[in-house]
């Protein structure tokens, strides 16, 4: 019995078993608890999920969240792509400096960054004051306390996350392939669109997934830069938990986001091997 088990189970599993247990107990357990709550609180049944059909506010919040996350993803990945491209093609020394600067931004608290934007872009902020002094505008532009503010804050936070998978992808490309394209007579833009862009597709997909999924959980930035006008799912969940104490609704939304992400990954896996996106081998 044990012998046959040994044949089928690699000893590696024994080594990771304690950590696996830890993950199950501390991670899967609470998730199952949330799913359970969404189906049982305040009373057993699907009424929490039924709210998705009946509650217009809820639908609007989900749509807002989706829209903001999508726009954030597109802009962040576009910026991230150019930054990663510049880094890969920069001189070795400069490349290190750029990477350091990129990683520095990970060390600054999201709260600090968000309030900085408020100071920079607020009605009495640096930018508005400057523009008014220069007589370019006559009254302050509403950069923050609206959706634009949320987008600025989120994109700023997300760009480094978009850069990393793209950078890894671009660094593994064989530069001779691009030389070959030039040698065969392709112009710079032909080489980019026909060769470089398709070869960086795994990086683009990875960056999009990473940014989109992280964006879904944004809480501080929309709360502060949205000025209470832009309500996203994470903030709504917190309100349900802490203020209105509707844990069932909160659990339902959390479950919805979880399954949304899983569905997204599933759909992506239909189009490409996810292992290549997450740095696995391509063969």
């Amino acid at each position: 019995m044990i012998d046959s088990l040994r044949k089928h189970v690699s000893p590696g599993w024994v080594l990771v078993a304690p950590f696996l247990m830890l993950v199950v107990v501390l991670y899967l357990g609470p998730i199952l608890n949330i799913l359970w709550l969404s189906l049982t609180d305040p009373e057993p049944g699907l009424q929490n999920y039924q709210k998705l059909y009946t509650n217009d506010t809820l639908l609007r919040i989900i749509w807002t969240t989706f829209r903001i996350c999508l726009i954030t993803t597109i802009i962040s990945v576009a910026f991230g792509y150019s930054i990663a491209y510049a880094m890969v093609h920069a001189h070795k020394k400069r490349q290190k400096l750029m990477l350091t600067l990129l990683l520095v931004s990970f060390w600054i608290s999201i709260l600090v960054r968000t309030f900085s934007w408020l100071m920079l872009l607020g009605h009495n902020g640096l930018l508005n004051n400057a523009l008014e002094t220069l007589n370019i505008i006559s009254e302050p532009v509403a950069f923050v306390r609206n959706e634009l503010g949320v987008l600025i804050g989120m994109v700023h936070y997300m760009v480094p996350y978009a850069v990393l998978p793209l950078l890894v992808n671009m660094q593994t490309l064989d530069t001779r392939v691009m030389s070959a394209s030039r040698n065969l007579g392709a112009t710079g833009s032909q080489t980019f669109f026909r060769i470089y862009l398709p070869l960086t597709k795994p990086g683009i997909v990875a960056a999009c997934l990473l940014v989109f999924i992280l964006s879904l959980g944004f809480y501080v930035t929309p709360a502060i830069l949205g000025g209470g006008k832009v309500l996203m799912v994470a903030e709504y969940i917190s309100v349900q938990l802490l203020v209105t104490l509707k844990w069932g609704t909160a659990a339902m939304l959390a479950a919805l986001m979880l399954f949304g992400v899983l569905a997204l990954l599933y759909i992506m896996s239909k189009f490409m091997k996810l292992s290549t996106v997450f740095g696995g081998s391509t063969s």
């Binding site: 001779r176 030389s179 070959a180 040698n183 065969l184 060769i195």
Partner: peptide, 20 residues
Amino acid sequence: VPAEKRNFGMVFQGYALFPH
């Protein structure tokens, strides 16, 4: 004359085929 205008064929070390 830039490389792309020289019209010289080239077989690269490691071939550098377009994998996609």
